[in-house]
Design a binder for these strands. Structure first.
Lengths: 201, 201, 201, 201
DNA sequence: CATGAATGAGGATTCATTCAT
DNA sequence: GATGAATGAATCCTCATTCAT
């Protein structure tokens, strides 16, 4: 059980949100492990003990948090979907997306999540499930886009292209972590080349 | 100081290896943070205190893994360097390299290192330095390869291509973590396409 | 930070006192180094972890004793200051002050502080600062007292007399430790002689 | 039992001395508690394990060390005894003796010993016994000196004067610890005044 | 609903001591 | 005699969690 019954469900929802927002700040600053419940409770403006009325454990907060993060990625995909030519949009937006993924603000939390996945089976399952859902959506987008251009849309091609594009962007976050002096303009050019090749072949 | 002097260097090396092997198992199972020294000591078949005769700290153990990783990557680069046409070799070997990077045996520890880097400054510095060294070697290979084909070798192009290729492979490890059912053949094709585009343009 | 905020300051003060009293007992029995936090927590009737809600560290506990000591000495000086003829008062009170300084209840903790100061730089700094403050107060008293008698009050004389008088009393604590059978009446006589000579010359 | 039987007693004595000399260095540098057996063994040029063939425990080293220190004090008294007019010699040598006692080289070890006394009953007993012996010798010197001048030599007077003089010098060590900027010339004057008053009254 | 005082298990690390060689 | 590898108990401190109020 992840949450107690509450008299006023609306108030409870607000409280949960308060905690999750506070957790986001703390997790970004200190990591899942580094952020203590006391730190989170202070940021959430409520007592540490009270948080346990809304979340069964710290892990439950992390879990809710991971779930929350799916929404953010979905939104990104939504933005691309709404464009006239989604495939071309991906290529055209390459500068923005590269710059975004290099920003620590962007990768700190995803990295935190995958790190947690490696030692917390609950988070791992959650995280894989979240990935599955975003993949499904991205796959649909890719399929529609390629059909428009009369390109192959068999499973193998579609899934391979998709995973490779995602590799590129998730790998980019790792690069930002390892090489603080990333050659941004050069990478934008290269990403454009790789994306064109992957999406339009 | 990273290690005490030992009278019998061979025995010491064996002991170090014992600890490292045990640690690898534990880190893979529980993560660097999650694995306690006592857990490691049990797996290594020696007392926790004694480990400190071979490693100055828990950090020093993961540091050893960082170095191990450098050696592994350097060897890979060395293999490519020794080929007649390195650029083409990268493309030709894509099946092997994709399969290797997908193997959990391969990425579990590197990912653990990434994760630790994101919050442990000592490991971060070590890890960035390791990255710098492998980058330098890969860059030289890439430069020589491109010169042979009369392709651009200005800094921007060279560094951008290089970082993008690395993104691809490091991202692949993340994909393997998030999606256990990766479409391997499809990815091999897609990786080949992306690599060709990146290396020969 | 030396202490967390507490909602009920009175209760907190009681708890702090509990810890301090328990610590005093343990420190007297086993020394600062020898007394473990767990030993203190048992004596204080609370968990070891909880002590850290009142004191930031074990050092912070001994720091509290340093301050306590300052207060005690300041009070003594205050008592002398309020007398009509402070210099004469010191000589007249010699019996009481010798007896007090010989009492283990009095010197056990100060001696523990000295000992800790000799190898713990934090405590050393604290302790030196405490000494500076009490010295300043005693010096003023001494100056005023000597001026009344038309005696020399140049820095050299004043500081020399002061430090020598303090040596006498602090040394007395060491003597009590080393020689449990101190010849109290004889020492009172001798202290009177030495103090007269030091204060009125 | 403090020591094993040894085939060659002379060699054993040398070894013991090696350890004690090394210990002196280490204790001064790091304190009794701070100096590890490994540190001492390195300084003594023999293995940690081997030390246990000469001393039953670390405490036994400390004990032997305390015993050793008595000799040093005895020597000081011996120097005074050999003078024509010992009482006057004490007063005349005041500059040297004050300067010596202020030197950290002098008080570091005694302070270490008394600190240890407060938590180690064996050392406490040893230390008190050492004090008793040096006191006896100093008392004899004082008695002879005072008889020469026809001064009172009843127990009360004699012991009181003696303990007070010792207080003065042992207190001086504490002052040096607490006040690094001790007014040395002023203290020499004051010590002379106090000593004259104590010895010749 | 809300607090924060209190717990206690668990973490890394150190070090005196033992013992096989 | 001599070594140093090996042990394991003990240390301070942190923090998720519980619960009386």
């Amino acid at each position: 059980m992840t949450e107690k019954r509450h008299i006023d469900p609306e108030r409870a929802a607000t409280r949960r949100r308060q905690v999750l927002d506070a957790a986001a700040t703390c997790f970004r600053r200190s990591g899942f492990h580094g952020a203590s419940m006391s730190e989170i409770s202070k940021a959430a403006g409520m007592s540490a003990g009270h948080i346990y009325n809304y979340f069964a454990s710290k892990d439950a907060i992390i879990a809710a948090f991971v779930e929350d993060n799916v929404a953010r990625v979905m939104e990104l995909i939504g933005n691309i979907e709404s464009q006239a030519d989604p495939l071309q949009a991906i290529v055209d937006d390459v500068e923005t997306s590269v710059r975004n993924n290099i920003d620590p603000e962007h990768w700190a939390l995803p990295l935190e999540i995958f790190a947690e996945s490696s030692r917390n089976p609950v988070i791992a399952a959650l995280s894989q499930d979240a990935d599955r859902r975003t993949r499904a959506r991205f796959r649909a987008l890719l399929k529609a886009g390629r059909e428009k251009y009369g390109l192959a849309v068999d499973d193998n091609t579609l899934d391979g292209r998709m995973e490779t594009v995602i590799s590129l962007f998730q790998g980019l976050q790792l690069r930002a972590l390892h090489n603080p002096g990333l050659p941004i303009p050069g990478m934008i050019d290269s990403f454009r080349i790789a994306l064109k090749a992957l999406l339009f072949n």
